[in-house]
Write a protein that binds this DNA or RNA. Structure first.
Length: 498
RNA sequence: GGUCAGUUGGAUGAGUGGUUUAGUCACUGGUCUGCAAAACCAGCUACAGCGGUUCGAGUCCGCUACUGACCUCCA
């Protein structure tokens, strides 16, 4: 049994609902992944981190989770370019590369960035291009059910007919009549019965590189089909959670629902979850606006808008400081604030070992109770639709408590220290997925020797200080500072960090 | 134009009717310290506007203003 009752905001119901999995103790979760035709930007980090938190938390409270996140490497049409041209193919032609070479290149870079952000890999990462056969079968099912028609080698979804039997707009709240009335000038419009019909299979233009044979034409699958197909293949006819960016709500997710209802006669997803956008200068950061900053540019500080580089953990912490359903505005000031705050947090965590246990007393019992109350509040925050800002807020309370103990303003016993360590690790490391970037991979014998050498220097400095030899003392500290070490004097001696 | 969301201090960002409206960053004063850094203590007169419901509204309802998202590829 799950140890906590999680509540999530279900876009379908527009309220928070208690989460109940279809199969006890198991969760099936599908999240729309990236289209790998360019470097990932800050906006891509949001859903990856948001659903990483959900993935981690579900596991923490006792679920076995199958997390599927797709790689879109085919199928997205571009309307500003030639008719029916595929995004991947277009990029490939520009760069004179094989389409799959482009896919591999950007996918590798995406994985590297996700790894840096400490985003856990999903259980399955299926490619759209690897499921063409399944997608063709899916189109056929919709055709057989009578909710699609063939036109000039392409297959379109018949929204008007679908709306007679099902509720088109159930997720996005759109009125189907208004959609039908809306006239838009899009490519391929003449082939459609209604402007709002969408492609299930698209006949490839002669210059189109990526295409596959099908009963209707040499072509490629439509925009929304891969998610319907692959979620069913790996998670079943019904599954628990479908996530993605809010900008995918319409038309992408609405069309997914339409496809599954048309093919299966019923919806397949129990909870739809959407993360909000990251903005820059008040506008959504996105490819179409050309105002995005890539993750690598953040890590290296190479974009003109950046006054300095920001580490992956700073980006992660910055994103977690806001609730996932709120927009979050990028600015150097906000990121610097996150960087400093994170540093304080990580130093607080590292300081746990510097607390000295006092004998158990009424005062230490009160301290322990405070820690347990903070833990309870953090579970409440997580259970309440993953309110990570509140979790962070409570972790700061814990940092403050640790510092008070070290400063002698509070007392803690051995049990309290153990509890602090456990609570901190559970929420900061396991659930929020933060890691100390400075000590990453620091376990070798060489590192031990290195640490010993620095400690030796500080011992020498301590002796100099004892004899009031400030010149030598400051020389050591300043030279170490030049090398990137921060030395802090405390009552129990000096500490250092890189 | 349609649909939906939002507007909280110097910045950011929680707050799902009820004693003091989280937390972080910045800033100010103090404690500690050889100095520095960190930490600790104390501050920093914020709920877009108007009206309504209520014993009580940041929170619920209505109107106004402004901003944004979606309606087209988008995380």
């Amino acid at each position: 049994m799950a140890t906590q009752q999680l509540y999530v905001y279900n876009t379908l119901a527009r309220i928070k609902q208690p989460f109940k999995s279809i199969v006890p103790d198991r969760v099936g979760m599908y999240v729309c992944g990236p289209t790998v035709y360019g470097d990932g930007h800050l906006g891509h980090a949001r859903p990856a981190i948001t659903f990483d938190i959900l993935f981690r938390y579900l596991q923490h409270i006792g679920y076995k989770v199958r997390y599927v996140r797709n790689i879109t490497d085919v199928g997205h049409l571009e309307h500003d370019a030639d008719e029916g041209e595929d995004k991947i193919a277009k990029k490939a032609r520009l760069e004179q590369k094989e389409p799959m070479e482009v896919v591999q290149y950007y996918m590798n870079r995406y994985h590297k960035a996700m790894d840096a952000l400490n985003v856990l890999p999903p259980s399955i990462e299926p490619h759209a291009s690897g499921h063409i056969i399944e997608q063709i079968a899916y189109v056929q099912k919709i055709l057989d059910a009578g909710f699609a028609y063939v036109s000039n080698g392409s297959v379109y979804f018949d929204v008007k007919k679908y709306a007679e039997k099902f509720h088109y707009g159930i997720l996005s709240g759109r009125n189907v009549n208004e959609l039908i009335d809306t006239t838009r000038e899009l490519d391929g419009q003449s082939e459609k019965r209604e402007a709002c019909d969408f492609a299930l299979w698209k006949k490839a233009a002669p210059e189109h590189i990526m295409h596959w044979p099908s009963p209707w034409s040499e072509g490629f699958p439509g925009w929304h089909l891969e998610c319907s197909t692959m979620s069913e293949k790996y998670l079943g006819e019904e599954f628990d959670i479908h996530g993605g960016g809010l900008d995918l709500l319409f038309p992408h997710h609405e069309c997914e629902i339409a496809q599954t209802c048309a093919a299966k006669g019923h919806q397949t997803v129990h909870y739809w979850m959407h993360n909000n956008m990251i903005t820059i200068d008040g506008k959504k950061m996105g490819k179409s606006y050309g105002n995005f900053i890539t993750l690598d540019e953040f890590f290296n500080g190479t974009h003109p808008k950046l006054t300095q580089p920001y580490s992956p953990m700073t980006i992660r912490f910055f994103i977690l400081m806001a609730h996932y359903r709120s927009t979050v505005d990028f600015s150097n000031e906000a990121l610097q604030s996150a960087e400093k705050g994170m540093k304080r947090m990580m130093e607080g965590y590292a300081s746990i070992c510097r607390m000295k246990a006092s004998p158990a007393s009424a005062e230490t019992a009160a301290t322990l109770k405070t820690i347990e109350e903070l833990e309870e509040k953090m579970y409440e925050a997580m259970n309440d639709d993953l309110t990570t800002p509140i979790v962070i807020s409570n972790l700061y309370e814990l940092v403050s408590l640790i510092n008070k103990v070290i400063d002698g303003h509070a007392k803690i016993d051995e049990a309290g220290i153990q509890k602090t360590q456990q609570v901190f690790k559970t929420f900061l490391i396991d659930i929020l997925g933060m890691k100390d970037e400075n000590v990453a991979g620091a376990d070798s014998a060489k590192t031990e020797a290195f640490k010993g050498a620095v400690d030796l220097l500080l011992d020498v400095r301590a002796k100099a200080k004892a004899s009031k030899d400030w010149a030598t003392s400051d020389l050591i500290r300043n030279k170490l500072a030049d090398l990137g070490f921060v030395v802090k004097d405390t009552k129990e001696g000096a500490t250092w960090s890189l």
